[in-house]
Simulated scan of single mutants.
Amino acid sequence: MSRVAYVNGLYVVHADAGVHVEDRGYQFGDGVYEVCEVRAGRMVDERRHMERLVRSLRELRIRLPMPLHALGVVLRETVRRNRVRDGFVYLQVTRGVARRDHYFPVPEVPPSVVVTARRVDAAKNEALAIEGVAVITVPENRWDRVDIKTVGLLPNVLAKQAAREAGAREAWFVDADGHVTEGGSTNAWIVTQDGVLRTRPAEHGILRGITRTVMFEVAEQLQLRIEERAFTVAEALAAREAFLSSATTIAMPVVRIDGQPIGGGSPGPVVRKLRELFHSVAEIAR
């Protein structure tokens, strides 16, 4: 069965899907996106993702393209048409199509909306979590508003590619003060030697990940303490455990940073518990 994409009001064959050459997302990266996990055919934390979408649109002064309930119908229909049981659904909203000009279009044009859905091999992801992953560190070189989930991801792309070429799964950005900000597509965490979860405060320096937000609730159920405080690479190397979080990785153990092992060089018990409990705490559509 061919994959299906939603593009500006139409469900089309994925291979034939496209946007206008002067769509501002293509020309300027003038748009935002969300990625939502699909588990057993149901969307995970849809409400939270839509709340963050609204915030991102507001920050860029792009209007919501349709009511949220209608957007939810489109997301679920795209998942259904692609027969995705385990995977994710991707939503992108741009300022729309207009003559190339740095100024906002006048008069305002309709936002462009693209939705795709893709299956993932859940067993493969679980196997990866059992082994753990490696990360490298790279200098922080992104703009100051990474708290907005924009489609302008070139620094992230270059960082992720550098990680792949180094045999790692992710790259952690490190700021001028030597503190880890976040990964190319994930939030970064450590577990200190005294068992405290530590992650950078979700201010302008990082994206407020939805999975990161839910992880606070999971930690509460496990009676784990969380510190929202930046950590250095040296602190990460000295940690008991480290891990990544995102909609596509959940809690993914980090076992090496820049080639050096973390803890015993294998996934630890804290991240395993966080991963096991996550979906019992997350909001899963019925």
Rank of each mutant, 00 (worst) to 15 (best):
M1E: 11
R3L: 14
A5W: 00
A5C: 08
Y6P: 10
V7E: 02
G9H: 00
G9T: 10
L10D: 12
Y11Q: 05
A15Q: 14
A17G: 11
G18C: 11
V19C: 03
V19H: 01
E22P: 01
G25W: 00
G25L: 05
Y26F: 11
D30K: 07
G41K: 04
G41Y: 00
M43I: 14
V44A: 05
D45F: 11
D45T: 13
E46Q: 12
E46C: 13
E51P: 09
V54T: 15
S56D: 08
S56F: 01
R58H: 12
L60Q: 13
R61N: 13
I62V: 14
I62M: 13
L68C: 03
A70S: 13
A70T: 08
L71S: 06
L71W: 06
G72R: 12
L75F: 07
E77N: 04
T78R: 02
V79C: 06
R80W: 06
R80K: 14
R81C: 14
R81S: 14
N82H: 08
R83C: 13
V84R: 01
L91Y: 01
Q92C: 08
V93N: 02
V93W: 01
T94G: 12
G96D: 04
Y103S: 15
F104G: 04
F104A: 11
P105E: 01
P105S: 02
V109N: 06
P110E: 06
V115T: 08
V115A: 06
T116Y: 03
T116G: 10
T116V: 13
R118F: 14
R119D: 13
V120Q: 04
V120L: 12
K124Y: 14
E126P: 06
A127T: 03
A129M: 11
I130N: 07
V133C: 06
A134N: 10
A134L: 05
A134F: 00
I136S: 05
T137I: 08
P139R: 01
P139S: 00
I148S: 09
G152H: 15
L154N: 06
P155M: 12
R164P: 01
A166Q: 09
A168N: 06
R169W: 14
A171I: 09
W172F: 15
F173G: 05
V174S: 07
A176P: 12
G178E: 08
H179L: 13
V180L: 03
V180W: 00
G183N: 02
G184I: 03
I190Y: 01
V191N: 03
Q193H: 04
R198M: 04
R198I: 03
P201C: 07
R212M: 09
V214I: 15
A219M: 07
E220F: 00
Q223M: 08
E228H: 02
A230K: 09
F231C: 07
T232D: 03
V233E: 00
L237N: 06
A238G: 15
E241N: 12
E241I: 13
A242I: 10
F243K: 01
S245P: 10
S246C: 05
T248V: 13
T248N: 13
A251M: 12
A251L: 06
P253Y: 03
V254P: 09
V255A: 02
R256A: 12
I257V: 12
I257K: 02
D258G: 12
G259Y: 09
I262Y: 01
G264L: 08
V271I: 07
R272C: 10
K273E: 10
F278Q: 02
F278I: 05
H279R: 04
H279F: 15
H279L: 15
S280A: 07
V281P: 07
A282P: 07
E283Q: 15
E283I: 12
